[in-house]
Write a protein that binds this DNA or RNA. Structure first.
Lengths: 260, 260
DNA sequence: CAGTGGTCTAGACCACACT
DNA sequence: GTGTGGTCTAGACCACTGC
Protein backbone atom coordinates (compact mmCIF):
# COMPACT_ATOMS: atom_id res chain seq x y z
CA UNK A 1 0.00 0.00 0.00
CA UNK A 2 1.21 3.47 -0.84
CA UNK A 3 2.02 5.92 1.91
CA UNK A 4 -0.40 8.65 2.85
CA UNK A 5 0.74 12.23 3.07
CA UNK A 6 -0.88 15.44 4.09
CA UNK A 7 -1.85 17.40 1.04
CA UNK A 8 -2.71 20.76 2.44
CA UNK A 9 -6.22 20.18 1.12
CA UNK A 10 -9.12 18.59 2.88
CA UNK A 11 -8.02 14.99 2.64
CA UNK A 12 -5.07 12.67 2.47
CA UNK A 13 -4.00 11.17 -0.82
CA UNK A 14 -2.10 8.06 -1.71
CA UNK A 15 1.11 8.63 -3.67
CA UNK A 16 3.30 6.18 -5.49
CA UNK A 17 6.48 6.67 -3.47
CA UNK A 18 7.05 7.22 0.26
CA UNK A 19 7.93 10.84 0.94
CA UNK A 20 8.71 10.87 4.62
CA UNK A 21 9.20 14.44 5.81
CA UNK A 22 8.52 16.78 2.90
CA UNK A 23 5.50 18.93 3.47
CA UNK A 24 4.56 21.07 0.52
CA UNK A 25 1.65 21.41 -1.85
CA UNK A 26 0.89 18.22 -3.72
CA UNK A 27 1.73 19.74 -7.07
CA UNK A 28 5.17 20.70 -5.77
CA UNK A 29 5.78 17.11 -4.76
CA UNK A 30 4.65 15.95 -8.19
CA UNK A 31 6.97 18.53 -9.71
CA UNK A 32 9.87 17.12 -7.73
CA UNK A 33 9.04 13.58 -8.81
CA UNK A 34 9.00 14.65 -12.46
CA UNK A 35 12.26 16.53 -11.94
CA UNK A 36 13.82 13.40 -10.47
CA UNK A 37 12.84 11.44 -13.55
CA UNK A 38 14.39 14.14 -15.73
CA UNK A 39 17.66 13.98 -13.78
CA UNK A 40 17.66 10.20 -13.89
CA UNK A 41 17.31 10.36 -17.65
CA UNK A 42 14.01 8.46 -17.70
CA UNK A 43 13.04 10.81 -20.56
CA UNK A 44 15.80 12.36 -22.65
CA UNK A 45 15.91 15.83 -24.26
CA UNK A 46 13.57 15.98 -27.24
CA UNK A 47 11.46 13.00 -26.12
CA UNK A 48 7.88 13.21 -24.90
CA UNK A 49 6.99 12.56 -21.30
CA UNK A 50 3.85 10.57 -20.44
CA UNK A 51 0.53 12.36 -20.94
CA UNK A 52 -1.07 14.28 -18.12
CA UNK A 53 -3.64 11.53 -17.64
CA UNK A 54 -0.95 8.85 -17.39
CA UNK A 55 1.06 10.85 -14.87
CA UNK A 56 -2.10 11.59 -12.88
CA UNK A 57 -2.77 7.85 -12.72
CA UNK A 58 0.84 7.04 -11.80
CA UNK A 59 0.92 9.55 -8.95
CA UNK A 60 -2.73 9.01 -7.92
CA UNK A 61 -3.64 12.66 -8.22
CA UNK A 62 -6.03 14.57 -10.45
CA UNK A 63 -5.04 15.77 -13.90
CA UNK A 64 -5.23 19.38 -12.69
CA UNK A 65 -2.53 18.79 -10.10
CA UNK A 66 -0.20 17.25 -12.67
CA UNK A 67 -1.00 20.14 -14.98
CA UNK A 68 0.11 22.69 -12.42
CA UNK A 69 3.37 20.82 -11.84
CA UNK A 70 4.07 20.65 -15.57
CA UNK A 71 3.09 24.32 -15.98
CA UNK A 72 5.86 25.36 -13.62
CA UNK A 73 8.44 23.11 -15.25
CA UNK A 74 7.42 24.57 -18.62
CA UNK A 75 7.82 28.18 -17.45
CA UNK A 76 11.28 27.18 -16.16
CA UNK A 77 12.09 25.98 -19.68
CA UNK A 78 12.66 22.40 -18.57
CA UNK A 79 9.63 21.10 -20.49
CA UNK A 80 7.88 22.28 -23.64
CA UNK A 81 4.15 21.77 -24.16
CA UNK A 82 2.73 21.28 -27.63
CA UNK A 83 -1.02 21.13 -27.99
CA UNK A 84 -2.25 17.97 -29.62
CA UNK A 85 1.19 16.33 -29.54
CA UNK A 86 2.36 16.07 -25.97
CA UNK A 87 4.87 17.47 -23.50
CA UNK A 88 8.55 17.28 -24.42
CA UNK A 89 11.82 17.51 -22.56
CA UNK A 90 13.39 20.81 -23.60
CA UNK A 91 16.54 20.65 -25.71
CA UNK A 92 19.13 23.12 -26.98
CA UNK A 93 18.82 21.58 -30.44
CA UNK A 94 15.64 23.57 -31.18
CA UNK A 95 15.99 26.57 -33.43
CA UNK A 96 13.69 28.52 -31.16
CA UNK A 97 15.96 28.31 -28.12
CA UNK A 98 19.14 29.03 -30.07
CA UNK A 99 19.71 32.45 -28.58
CA UNK A 100 18.52 31.98 -25.04
CA UNK A 101 22.11 31.87 -23.80
CA UNK A 102 23.77 34.18 -26.35
CA UNK A 103 22.60 37.73 -25.75
CA UNK A 104 24.97 39.45 -28.16
CA UNK A 105 23.02 40.75 -31.16
CA UNK A 106 24.01 42.87 -34.15
CA UNK A 107 23.30 46.60 -33.89
CA UNK A 108 21.35 46.40 -37.14
CA UNK A 109 19.12 43.38 -37.38
CA UNK A 110 17.57 40.74 -35.21
CA UNK A 111 19.30 37.97 -33.25
CA UNK A 112 20.52 35.38 -35.72
CA UNK A 113 19.92 37.55 -38.77
CA UNK A 114 23.60 37.22 -39.67
CA UNK A 115 23.30 33.48 -40.13
CA UNK A 116 25.19 30.94 -38.08
CA UNK A 117 28.53 31.97 -36.56
CA UNK A 118 31.75 30.61 -37.96
CA UNK A 119 33.40 28.65 -35.18
CA UNK A 120 37.14 28.41 -34.90
CA UNK A 121 38.42 26.14 -32.15
CA UNK A 122 41.93 27.25 -31.31
CA UNK A 123 42.69 24.90 -28.49
CA UNK A 124 41.27 22.10 -26.35
CA UNK A 125 43.36 20.36 -23.76
CA UNK A 126 43.27 18.62 -20.46
CA UNK A 127 44.69 20.50 -17.50
CA UNK A 128 44.21 20.99 -13.78
CA UNK A 129 41.85 23.42 -12.08
CA UNK A 130 43.35 26.54 -10.54
CA UNK A 131 41.81 27.77 -7.32
CA UNK A 132 39.31 30.14 -8.96
CA UNK A 133 38.32 27.67 -11.70
CA UNK A 134 37.78 25.00 -9.06
CA UNK A 135 35.63 27.29 -6.96
CA UNK A 136 33.42 28.18 -9.90
CA UNK A 137 32.88 24.53 -10.86
CA UNK A 138 32.54 23.23 -7.27
CA UNK A 139 35.69 21.15 -7.67
CA UNK A 140 38.93 21.00 -5.70
CA UNK A 141 42.08 22.79 -6.79
CA UNK A 142 44.08 20.48 -9.04
CA UNK A 143 41.10 18.40 -10.18
CA UNK A 144 41.28 17.58 -13.90
CA UNK A 145 39.44 19.93 -16.23
CA UNK A 146 39.14 20.43 -19.97
CA UNK A 147 40.03 23.85 -21.27
CA UNK A 148 39.01 25.11 -24.70
CA UNK A 149 39.40 28.39 -26.55
CA UNK A 150 37.46 29.40 -29.63
CA UNK A 151 36.65 32.43 -31.74
CA UNK A 152 33.21 33.11 -33.20
CA UNK A 153 33.08 35.22 -36.34
CA UNK A 154 30.18 36.82 -38.17
CA UNK A 155 30.57 37.77 -41.82
CA UNK A 156 34.26 37.02 -41.54
CA UNK A 157 34.83 39.39 -38.62
CA UNK A 158 35.89 37.90 -35.28
CA UNK A 159 33.42 39.10 -32.64
CA UNK A 160 33.63 36.70 -29.70
CA UNK A 161 36.58 35.04 -27.99
CA UNK A 162 35.70 32.39 -25.44
CA UNK A 163 37.73 30.44 -22.90
CA UNK A 164 35.78 27.47 -21.60
CA UNK A 165 36.44 25.18 -18.65
CA UNK A 166 34.59 21.89 -18.12
CA UNK A 167 34.98 19.25 -15.41
CA UNK A 168 36.94 16.41 -17.04
CA UNK A 169 34.96 13.51 -15.61
CA UNK A 170 31.50 14.09 -17.14
CA UNK A 171 33.05 15.34 -20.39
CA UNK A 172 35.55 12.49 -20.81
CA UNK A 173 36.39 12.07 -24.48
CA UNK A 174 35.74 15.64 -25.64
CA UNK A 175 38.39 16.76 -28.14
CA UNK A 176 39.05 19.82 -30.27
CA UNK A 177 37.99 17.81 -33.33
CA UNK A 178 34.61 16.89 -31.91
CA UNK A 179 34.06 20.49 -30.87
CA UNK A 180 35.10 21.81 -34.27
CA UNK A 181 33.22 19.28 -36.38
CA UNK A 182 29.89 19.44 -34.57
CA UNK A 183 27.22 21.41 -36.38
CA UNK A 184 24.88 23.28 -34.06
CA UNK A 185 25.03 24.75 -30.58
CA UNK A 186 27.68 23.46 -28.19
CA UNK A 187 25.05 22.80 -25.53
CA UNK A 188 23.25 20.48 -27.96
CA UNK A 189 26.49 18.50 -28.35
CA UNK A 190 26.71 18.27 -24.57
CA UNK A 191 23.22 16.79 -24.44
CA UNK A 192 23.65 14.13 -27.09
CA UNK A 193 27.25 13.13 -26.39
CA UNK A 194 27.65 13.59 -22.66
CA UNK A 195 24.10 13.57 -21.32
CA UNK A 196 24.63 16.99 -19.74
CA UNK A 197 21.77 19.44 -20.14
CA UNK A 198 22.34 23.10 -19.21
CA UNK A 199 19.23 24.62 -17.71
CA UNK A 200 20.34 27.89 -16.13
CA UNK A 201 23.30 30.25 -16.16
CA UNK A 202 24.61 33.37 -14.45
CA UNK A 203 26.67 35.98 -16.23
CA UNK A 204 28.88 38.62 -14.63
CA UNK A 205 29.61 41.40 -17.08
CA UNK A 206 32.43 43.91 -17.01
CA UNK A 207 34.24 46.29 -19.35
CA UNK A 208 37.90 45.38 -19.82
CA UNK A 209 40.68 46.46 -22.15
CA UNK A 210 41.82 43.97 -24.82
CA UNK A 211 45.11 42.57 -23.49
CA UNK A 212 47.14 39.36 -23.28
CA UNK A 213 46.84 38.47 -26.94
CA UNK A 214 43.07 38.82 -27.03
CA UNK A 215 43.48 41.96 -29.11
CA UNK A 216 45.15 39.90 -31.86
CA UNK A 217 42.53 37.14 -31.92
CA UNK A 218 39.74 39.71 -32.11
CA UNK A 219 41.68 41.97 -34.46
CA UNK A 220 41.26 45.15 -32.42
CA UNK A 221 43.77 47.64 -31.08
CA UNK A 222 45.50 46.76 -27.84
CA UNK A 223 43.50 48.22 -24.95
CA UNK A 224 40.23 48.50 -26.89
CA UNK A 225 37.32 48.15 -24.45
CA UNK A 226 35.73 44.70 -24.62
CA UNK A 227 32.73 43.26 -22.85
CA UNK A 228 33.95 40.60 -20.44
CA UNK A 229 31.24 38.01 -19.78
CA UNK A 230 31.92 35.34 -17.17
CA UNK A 231 29.27 32.65 -17.30
CA UNK A 232 28.66 29.75 -14.98
CA UNK A 233 26.16 27.30 -16.46
CA UNK A 234 24.21 24.87 -14.32
CA UNK A 235 22.56 21.56 -15.05
CA UNK A 236 19.62 20.06 -13.12
CA UNK A 237 19.86 20.49 -9.35
CA UNK A 238 21.98 23.64 -9.76
CA UNK A 239 25.20 21.72 -10.34
CA UNK A 240 27.74 24.00 -12.05
CA UNK A 241 29.04 22.25 -15.18
CA UNK A 242 30.73 24.95 -17.22
CA UNK A 243 32.75 28.09 -16.69
CA UNK A 244 33.05 30.35 -19.70
CA UNK A 245 34.92 33.62 -20.00
CA UNK A 246 33.81 35.48 -23.09
CA UNK A 247 35.23 38.64 -24.59
CA UNK A 248 32.81 40.44 -26.90
CA UNK A 249 33.53 43.18 -29.38
CA UNK A 250 30.79 45.79 -29.05
CA UNK A 251 31.62 48.08 -31.96
CA UNK A 252 29.04 46.39 -34.22
CA UNK A 253 27.09 44.33 -31.69
CA UNK A 254 25.57 44.83 -28.25
CA UNK A 255 24.47 42.69 -25.33
CA UNK A 256 20.68 42.87 -25.14
CA UNK A 257 18.91 42.33 -21.86
CA UNK A 258 15.21 42.56 -21.09
CA UNK A 259 14.19 43.60 -17.59
CA UNK A 260 10.70 42.66 -16.55
CA UNK B 1 -28.25 42.82 -21.37
CA UNK B 2 -24.59 41.92 -21.69
CA UNK B 3 -23.18 40.73 -24.99
CA UNK B 4 -22.45 37.09 -25.56
CA UNK B 5 -19.10 35.97 -26.86
CA UNK B 6 -17.59 32.69 -27.84
CA UNK B 7 -15.45 31.38 -25.05
CA UNK B 8 -13.63 28.52 -26.64
CA UNK B 9 -15.30 26.27 -24.11
CA UNK B 10 -18.58 24.44 -24.44
CA UNK B 11 -20.89 27.40 -23.99
CA UNK B 12 -21.31 31.10 -24.42
CA UNK B 13 -20.91 33.38 -21.45
CA UNK B 14 -22.22 36.80 -20.70
CA UNK B 15 -19.58 39.45 -20.06
CA UNK B 16 -19.92 42.90 -18.64
CA UNK B 17 -18.67 44.86 -21.66
CA UNK B 18 -19.23 44.35 -25.38
CA UNK B 19 -16.11 42.89 -26.98
CA UNK B 20 -16.95 42.81 -30.68
CA UNK B 21 -14.22 41.00 -32.58
CA UNK B 22 -11.68 39.71 -30.09
CA UNK B 23 -11.52 35.97 -29.99
CA UNK B 24 -9.23 34.60 -27.32
CA UNK B 25 -9.54 32.50 -24.20
CA UNK B 26 -11.88 34.00 -21.65
CA UNK B 27 -9.13 34.45 -19.11
CA UNK B 28 -7.14 36.48 -21.65
CA UNK B 29 -10.10 38.77 -22.13
CA UNK B 30 -10.44 39.13 -18.38
CA UNK B 31 -6.73 39.86 -18.20
CA UNK B 32 -7.17 42.64 -20.76
CA UNK B 33 -10.07 44.11 -18.83
CA UNK B 34 -8.00 44.15 -15.63
CA UNK B 35 -5.09 45.67 -17.54
CA UNK B 36 -7.38 48.40 -18.85
CA UNK B 37 -8.41 49.24 -15.32
CA UNK B 38 -4.75 49.41 -14.31
CA UNK B 39 -3.96 51.80 -17.18
CA UNK B 40 -7.01 53.91 -16.38
CA UNK B 41 -5.78 54.21 -12.82
CA UNK B 42 -8.89 52.61 -11.32
CA UNK B 43 -6.50 51.04 -8.79
CA UNK B 44 -3.21 52.80 -8.03
CA UNK B 45 0.19 51.27 -7.23
CA UNK B 46 0.18 49.83 -3.72
CA UNK B 47 -3.61 49.57 -3.51
CA UNK B 48 -5.55 46.32 -3.48
CA UNK B 49 -7.69 45.31 -6.40
CA UNK B 50 -11.10 43.68 -5.78
CA UNK B 51 -11.08 40.10 -4.53
CA UNK B 52 -11.22 37.21 -6.96
CA UNK B 53 -14.85 36.57 -6.05
CA UNK B 54 -15.80 40.19 -6.69
CA UNK B 55 -14.06 40.25 -10.05
CA UNK B 56 -15.65 36.92 -10.96
CA UNK B 57 -19.06 38.41 -10.21
CA UNK B 58 -18.30 41.61 -12.10
CA UNK B 59 -17.17 39.76 -15.23
CA UNK B 60 -19.69 36.91 -14.86
CA UNK B 61 -17.07 34.19 -14.96
CA UNK B 62 -15.91 31.64 -12.45
CA UNK B 63 -13.29 32.41 -9.81
CA UNK B 64 -10.87 30.04 -11.53
CA UNK B 65 -10.91 32.08 -14.70
CA UNK B 66 -10.21 35.30 -12.83
CA UNK B 67 -7.46 33.46 -10.97
CA UNK B 68 -5.72 32.48 -14.17
CA UNK B 69 -5.87 36.06 -15.47
CA UNK B 70 -4.43 37.41 -12.22
CA UNK B 71 -1.79 34.67 -12.19
CA UNK B 72 -0.40 35.90 -15.48
CA UNK B 73 -0.45 39.54 -14.42
CA UNK B 74 1.36 38.52 -11.24
CA UNK B 75 4.10 36.64 -13.12
CA UNK B 76 4.51 39.76 -15.28
CA UNK B 77 5.11 41.73 -12.07
CA UNK B 78 2.09 43.97 -12.62
CA UNK B 79 0.23 42.59 -9.60
CA UNK B 80 1.39 41.09 -6.32
CA UNK B 81 -0.62 38.44 -4.49
CA UNK B 82 -0.53 38.18 -0.73
CA UNK B 83 -2.29 35.28 0.87
CA UNK B 84 -4.92 36.31 3.37
CA UNK B 85 -4.64 39.99 2.46
CA UNK B 86 -5.50 40.45 -1.18
CA UNK B 87 -4.00 41.27 -4.56
CA UNK B 88 -2.08 44.54 -4.89
CA UNK B 89 -0.96 46.72 -7.74
CA UNK B 90 2.82 46.38 -7.92
CA UNK B 91 4.90 49.40 -6.97
CA UNK B 92 8.55 50.38 -7.11
CA UNK B 93 8.31 51.62 -3.54
CA UNK B 94 8.68 48.07 -2.15
CA UNK B 95 12.06 47.13 -0.74
CA UNK B 96 11.80 43.75 -2.42
CA UNK B 97 11.68 45.15 -5.94
CA UNK B 98 14.43 47.71 -5.33
CA UNK B 99 17.00 46.01 -7.54
CA UNK B 100 14.85 44.65 -10.33
CA UNK B 101 16.05 47.40 -12.67
CA UNK B 102 19.56 47.94 -11.30
CA UNK B 103 21.71 44.93 -12.11
CA UNK B 104 25.04 46.35 -10.99
CA UNK B 105 26.17 44.60 -7.82
CA UNK B 106 29.37 44.79 -5.78
CA UNK B 107 31.99 42.11 -6.46
CA UNK B 108 31.98 41.24 -2.77
CA UNK B 109 28.54 41.13 -1.25
CA UNK B 110 24.93 40.93 -2.23
CA UNK B 111 22.84 43.49 -4.12
CA UNK B 112 22.13 46.36 -1.76
CA UNK B 113 24.63 45.25 0.85
CA UNK B 114 26.40 48.59 0.51
CA UNK B 115 23.39 50.47 1.72
CA UNK B 116 21.51 53.06 -0.34
CA UNK B 117 23.41 54.91 -3.07
CA UNK B 118 24.32 58.56 -2.58
CA UNK B 119 22.58 60.44 -5.35
CA UNK B 120 24.07 63.58 -6.80
CA UNK B 121 21.89 65.34 -9.35
CA UNK B 122 24.18 67.44 -11.53
CA UNK B 123 21.69 68.85 -13.94
CA UNK B 124 18.03 68.83 -14.93
CA UNK B 125 16.75 71.01 -17.71
CA UNK B 126 14.16 71.28 -20.40
CA UNK B 127 15.40 70.86 -23.97
CA UNK B 128 14.32 69.49 -27.35
CA UNK B 129 14.63 65.94 -28.58
CA UNK B 130 17.35 65.16 -31.08
CA UNK B 131 16.55 62.60 -33.77
CA UNK B 132 17.83 59.58 -31.85
CA UNK B 133 16.29 60.64 -28.53
CA UNK B 134 12.97 61.20 -30.28
CA UNK B 135 13.10 57.79 -31.93
CA UNK B 136 13.77 56.05 -28.63
CA UNK B 137 10.86 57.81 -26.89
CA UNK B 138 8.45 57.58 -29.86
CA UNK B 139 8.36 61.37 -30.14
CA UNK B 140 9.12 63.71 -33.02
CA UNK B 141 12.44 65.48 -33.41
CA UNK B 142 12.25 68.79 -31.57
CA UNK B 143 9.53 67.73 -29.14
CA UNK B 144 10.20 69.03 -25.62
CA UNK B 145 12.01 66.65 -23.28
CA UNK B 146 13.51 66.83 -19.82
CA UNK B 147 17.16 65.92 -19.53
CA UNK B 148 18.86 65.04 -16.26
CA UNK B 149 22.31 63.89 -15.28
CA UNK B 150 23.27 62.32 -11.98
CA UNK B 151 26.04 60.38 -10.30
CA UNK B 152 25.46 57.47 -7.94
CA UNK B 153 28.16 56.79 -5.37
CA UNK B 154 28.70 53.88 -3.01
CA UNK B 155 30.87 54.35 0.06
CA UNK B 156 31.93 57.71 -1.30
CA UNK B 157 33.15 56.34 -4.62
CA UNK B 158 31.33 57.41 -7.80
CA UNK B 159 30.26 54.25 -9.63
CA UNK B 160 27.42 55.19 -11.96
CA UNK B 161 26.90 58.20 -14.23
CA UNK B 162 23.46 58.47 -15.81
CA UNK B 163 21.99 60.72 -18.46
CA UNK B 164 18.21 60.53 -18.48
CA UNK B 165 15.66 61.79 -21.00
CA UNK B 166 11.94 62.00 -20.26
CA UNK B 167 9.07 63.26 -22.41
CA UNK B 168 8.23 66.72 -21.05
CA UNK B 169 4.43 66.43 -21.16
CA UNK B 170 3.78 63.60 -18.69
CA UNK B 171 6.62 64.76 -16.44
CA UNK B 172 5.62 68.42 -16.36
CA UNK B 173 6.93 70.02 -13.18
CA UNK B 174 9.90 67.75 -12.55
CA UNK B 175 12.91 69.75 -11.34
CA UNK B 176 16.43 68.99 -10.14
CA UNK B 177 15.29 69.82 -6.60
CA UNK B 178 12.46 67.30 -6.61
CA UNK B 179 14.80 64.68 -8.04
CA UNK B 180 17.50 65.43 -5.49
CA UNK B 181 15.24 65.67 -2.45
CA UNK B 182 13.21 62.54 -3.02
CA UNK B 183 14.15 59.61 -0.82
CA UNK B 184 13.78 56.26 -2.55
CA UNK B 185 13.88 54.93 -6.08
CA UNK B 186 13.30 57.34 -8.95
CA UNK B 187 10.62 55.09 -10.39
CA UNK B 188 8.70 55.35 -7.12
CA UNK B 189 8.76 59.15 -7.49
CA UNK B 190 7.41 58.78 -11.01
CA UNK B 191 4.50 56.71 -9.68
CA UNK B 192 3.44 59.01 -6.89
CA UNK B 193 4.10 62.37 -8.55
CA UNK B 194 3.41 61.75 -12.22
CA UNK B 195 1.26 58.64 -12.27
CA UNK B 196 3.75 56.89 -14.53
CA UNK B 197 4.53 53.29 -13.67
CA UNK B 198 7.47 51.57 -15.38
CA UNK B 199 6.74 47.91 -15.99
CA UNK B 200 9.41 46.73 -18.43
CA UNK B 201 12.74 47.84 -19.85
CA UNK B 202 15.33 46.89 -22.42
CA UNK B 203 19.04 47.45 -21.95
CA UNK B 204 21.69 47.51 -24.67
CA UNK B 205 25.12 47.01 -23.15
CA UNK B 206 28.49 47.91 -24.64
CA UNK B 207 32.06 48.51 -23.52
CA UNK B 208 33.22 52.08 -24.14
CA UNK B 209 36.19 54.19 -23.13
CA UNK B 210 35.60 56.97 -20.57
CA UNK B 211 35.55 60.16 -22.65
CA UNK B 212 33.84 63.55 -22.91
CA UNK B 213 34.19 64.45 -19.28
CA UNK B 214 32.72 61.23 -18.00
CA UNK B 215 36.17 60.22 -16.77
CA UNK B 216 36.21 63.21 -14.43
CA UNK B 217 32.75 62.61 -12.99
CA UNK B 218 33.56 58.95 -12.34
CA UNK B 219 37.12 59.73 -11.24
CA UNK B 220 38.83 57.27 -13.57
CA UNK B 221 41.59 57.70 -16.13
CA UNK B 222 40.61 58.99 -19.53
CA UNK B 223 39.89 56.05 -21.80
CA UNK B 224 39.22 53.57 -18.97
CA UNK B 225 36.73 50.93 -20.19
CA UNK B 226 33.23 51.57 -18.85
CA UNK B 227 30.05 49.59 -19.21
CA UNK B 228 27.66 51.60 -21.36
CA UNK B 229 24.04 50.71 -20.58
CA UNK B 230 21.32 52.25 -22.72
CA UNK B 231 17.91 51.59 -21.22
CA UNK B 232 14.48 52.27 -22.63
CA UNK B 233 11.80 51.86 -19.97
CA UNK B 234 8.17 51.21 -20.85
CA UNK B 235 4.94 51.83 -19.02
CA UNK B 236 1.67 49.92 -19.54
CA UNK B 237 0.89 49.15 -23.18
CA UNK B 238 4.60 49.22 -24.09
CA UNK B 239 4.75 53.02 -24.27
CA UNK B 240 8.40 54.14 -23.97
CA UNK B 241 8.63 56.73 -21.19
CA UNK B 242 12.31 56.99 -20.37
CA UNK B 243 15.65 56.82 -22.11
CA UNK B 244 18.64 56.37 -19.84
CA UNK B 245 22.28 56.17 -20.80
CA UNK B 246 24.31 54.80 -17.92
CA UNK B 247 28.06 54.49 -17.58
CA UNK B 248 29.14 51.96 -14.98
CA UNK B 249 32.55 51.48 -13.43
CA UNK B 250 33.27 47.76 -13.31
CA UNK B 251 36.49 47.71 -11.32
CA UNK B 252 34.65 46.97 -8.07
CA UNK B 253 31.20 46.05 -9.38
CA UNK B 254 29.73 43.89 -12.12
CA UNK B 255 26.50 43.65 -14.06
CA UNK B 256 24.78 40.43 -12.99
CA UNK B 257 22.41 38.69 -15.34
CA UNK B 258 20.58 35.39 -14.85
CA UNK B 259 19.77 33.35 -17.93
CA UNK B 260 17.00 30.83 -17.54
C1' DC C 1 -11.30 8.89 -35.46
C1' DA C 2 -8.69 8.85 -30.86
C1' DG C 3 -5.34 11.12 -28.08
C1' DT C 4 -3.10 15.21 -26.60
C1' DG C 5 -2.91 19.60 -24.23
C1' DG C 6 -6.07 23.91 -23.26
C1' DT C 7 -10.08 26.11 -21.17
C1' DC C 8 -13.97 26.60 -18.07
C1' DT C 9 -16.78 25.50 -14.32
C1' DA C 10 -18.32 24.33 -9.47
C1' DG C 11 -17.48 23.07 -5.08
C1' DA C 12 -14.69 21.77 -1.20
C1' DC C 13 -11.24 22.65 2.12
C1' DC C 14 -6.60 24.78 3.79
C1' DA C 15 -3.43 28.59 5.26
C1' DC C 16 -3.10 33.16 6.42
C1' DA C 17 -4.34 37.92 8.15
C1' DC C 18 -7.18 40.91 10.46
C1' DT C 19 -10.64 42.07 13.90
C1' DG D 1 -15.07 34.46 12.95
C1' DT D 2 -14.81 36.40 8.40
C1' DG D 3 -12.57 37.22 4.26
C1' DT D 4 -8.55 36.66 1.49
C1' DG D 5 -5.69 33.95 -1.66
C1' DG D 6 -3.99 28.81 -2.31
C1' DT D 7 -4.80 23.95 -3.31
C1' DC D 8 -7.28 19.96 -4.97
C1' DT D 9 -10.79 17.59 -7.29
C1' DA D 10 -14.09 16.03 -11.02
C1' DG D 11 -16.22 16.61 -15.14
C1' DA D 12 -17.25 18.86 -19.40
C1' DC D 13 -16.03 20.62 -23.78
C1' DC D 14 -12.62 22.89 -27.24
C1' DA D 15 -8.47 22.99 -30.34
C1' DC D 16 -4.88 20.77 -32.38
C1' DT D 17 -2.28 16.63 -34.29
C1' DG D 18 -1.86 12.53 -36.64
C1' DC D 19 -3.72 8.02 -37.94
Amino acid sequence: MADKISTGAGSTVAVAAPLAAAFSPLYQQIKSLILNSLCAGEWKPGETIPSEMELAARFRVSQGTVRKAIDELATENLLVRRQGKGTFVATHAEQQVQFRFLKLVPDNGLPGSEGPAQRNVIDCRRTRASADIARALALRTGDPVLQARRVLSFAGTPIILEDIWLPAIPFKGLTAERLANYQGPMYALFETEFNVRMVRAEEKIRAEPALEGREKLLKVGRGTPLLSVERIAYTYQDEPMELRRGYYRTDTHHYLNVLS
